[in-house]
Design a protein around this nucleic acid. Structure first.
Length: 166
DNA sequence: TAGGCCATCTGGTCCT
DNA sequence: AGGACCAGATGGCCTA
């Protein structure tokens, strides 16, 4: 049910551009959507689902349609927020492929490795010494260490560092 | 052309 | 009750 006609490479700027094109696109979407829905409603399972949904919310067709459009819009906004968050994450993760946009799964994986690596660097710098008397900094590193140990133990720090550098 | 990635729609479920 | 969240389905675009 994707309606964007832009290419993948242009998607970096698509979010903003798309908003200006949205009203025109929306009509197109609706037509496609209705066709899609018709197809889906062809199966018995789907029609029974819809029957139960309608029993739960006994709205008029017009009302239902309006509410659907409203939730679609909310869902779009939610996904846009999510994508903005992904973009913000991309911008703080060091990676080699600067010319190409990282995919979502790549972004998450790199972020995870990056955090692990930073954690191990901090622990190495603190050299296993973090008395509580040092104040907030010491307590924080201590907590970090405990968490890190829970997650991994000490033996794979080098591996994380290597992953980070790639 | 197949496969990967993505945006969108949709109905169900959870949460406030 | 209504919005947020989630997962499945679908179809478009791009690349190898």
């Amino acid at each position: 049910m994707k309606t964007k006609t832009k290419g993948k490479k242009q998607r970096h700027t698509v979010d903003k551009e798309a908003f200006s094109e949205e009203s025109a696109m929306r009509k197109k979407e609706l037509v496609k959507c209705l066709r899609h829905k018709e197809r889906r409603n062809g199966g018995n399972k789907e029609s029974s689902k819809i029957t139960t949904a309608r029993a739960k919310h006994p709205w008029s067709n017009k009302d239902r349609h309006l509410r659907r459009l409203e939730s679609n819009e909310r869902e779009r906004q939610r996904m846009h927020k999510l994508n903005n968050a992904f973009q913000a994450l991309r911008e703080v993760i060091p990676h080699v492929r600067a010319e190409n946009k990282l995919s979502k799964i790549e972004t998450l994986t790199l972020a995870k490795n990056y955090i692990k690596s930073l954690t191990s660097i901090i622990l190495n710098m603190s050299n296993g010494h973090f008395p509580a008397a040092e104040g907030m900094g010491g307590a924080w590193v201590s907590k970090l260490y405990q968490h890190y140990q829970q997650q991994h133990g000490d033996d794979d720090r080098e591996e994380h560092l290597q992953k980070c550098s790639t």
